[in-house]
Computed example of a mutant assay.
Amino acid sequence: MTEAVRADARRNYELLLSVAREAFAEHGTDASLRDVARRAGVGIGTLYRHFPTREALLEALFRTRFDDLRLRAEDLLSSQSPREALVAWLKELAIGSTTYRGLPESVMAAVRDPDSELHASCMRMRGAGAALLDRAQRSGDVRSDVTIEELMALAAGVAWVSSESTGGADLVDRLMILVTTGLATA
């Protein structure tokens, strides 16, 4: 493969990501892939060469975001009280999940499906959140019967509700306060 071909392929890859980001912001994660290719000025075959599935495209878009959430959880393990660290991470997860309509559903589906292109990124992020939950439970700040699956479902629910209303980040904050109050031990 020549340098020019590799450079052209890299440009197409980056252009497709940029256009997909815009299309998903406008239409949610179910935006037409044919429309993404058309907007990028490439054929649908070019899109599928780079991203064989919708999930492969989503994974490329969100890998960095999920890695950032994982790193944030790791930082929070030593920076705040266990409960505050967990709550801060859950808020960031919920707010980040409001970026695109349909994203919370995509994340929850990927966690359940080991064959999903998003699965590995989601599971690394989930594992980091589980460490925060474990720390908060060991400190006695959070109920011992709460699971990371339940917390991710709560964050996804908060994200979905806030993306379907006009409340935005303020609504996420209010809902997270209500949700996390229920996590506390008596």
Rank of each mutant, 00 (worst) to 15 (best):
V158N: 07
I95W: 06
A159P: 04
E74R: 13
E22P: 09
S106M: 11
V179M: 12
R34H: 13
R135I: 00
V5E: 15
R72K: 09
D145T: 02
L133K: 01
R34V: 09
G167L: 11
G140L: 03
D145R: 13
E22N: 10
I95F: 08
M152T: 06
M108N: 12
W89R: 04
V172N: 05
A56Y: 04
A9Q: 14
Q80A: 11
G28C: 05
T166P: 11
Y100W: 10
G167P: 07
R54H: 04
A56G: 07
R126G: 07
E92G: 14
D115E: 14
A109M: 07
V87P: 07
E59N: 11
S163I: 08
D113A: 03
A184T: 04
I148F: 06
A153Q: 14
F66S: 01
L76I: 01
R21V: 03
I44F: 13
H119T: 00
L47P: 00
M1F: 07
R135D: 04
M1G: 15
D68V: 05
L71Q: 15
D30K: 12
R101T: 08
D145H: 05
A88H: 05
S97R: 07
D30I: 05
I44D: 14
M152V: 09
E22F: 04
F24C: 00
S116K: 07
H50G: 00
A20N: 03
D68Y: 01
S79R: 15
A56S: 13
L132A: 01
L86E: 08
R124I: 01
L57C: 05
T181A: 14
E84Y: 10
R63C: 09
V179R: 10
E117H: 10
D113N: 12
V142Y: 02
F66N: 04
G127H: 08
L69A: 06
S79T: 10
I148W: 12
I177G: 15
T180R: 03
R63A: 10
D75K: 13
G96R: 08
A85V: 00
I95Y: 10
G96C: 00
T64A: 12
T180H: 03
R83D: 08
R135G: 02
E105F: 05
Y100E: 12
V179C: 10
G96D: 03
D170F: 12
L175K: 09
A156D: 07
S139Y: 08
A156G: 05
L77G: 03
R49D: 05
R49Y: 06
A186G: 15
L58F: 00
A37I: 01
R21N: 13
L132H: 01
L178F: 14
M152E: 06
T2D: 15
S78M: 09
G157R: 05
E84Q: 15
V142R: 02
S116F: 01
D145Y: 11
L151G: 00
F66Y: 12
V42L: 06
A73D: 02
A110P: 01
A110D: 02
R65F: 10
G28Q: 07
D30T: 11
M1H: 13
S32I: 02
L183A: 02
T180N: 06
A37W: 00
D75M: 08
Q80H: 12
L17I: 02
D67T: 11
S32V: 00
S32K: 06
V19H: 05
L132V: 01
T46M: 05
R38K: 12
D30Y: 12
T185Y: 09
A130Y: 11
S106K: 14
L118Q: 03
V146M: 11
M123V: 08
T185W: 09
V36H: 09
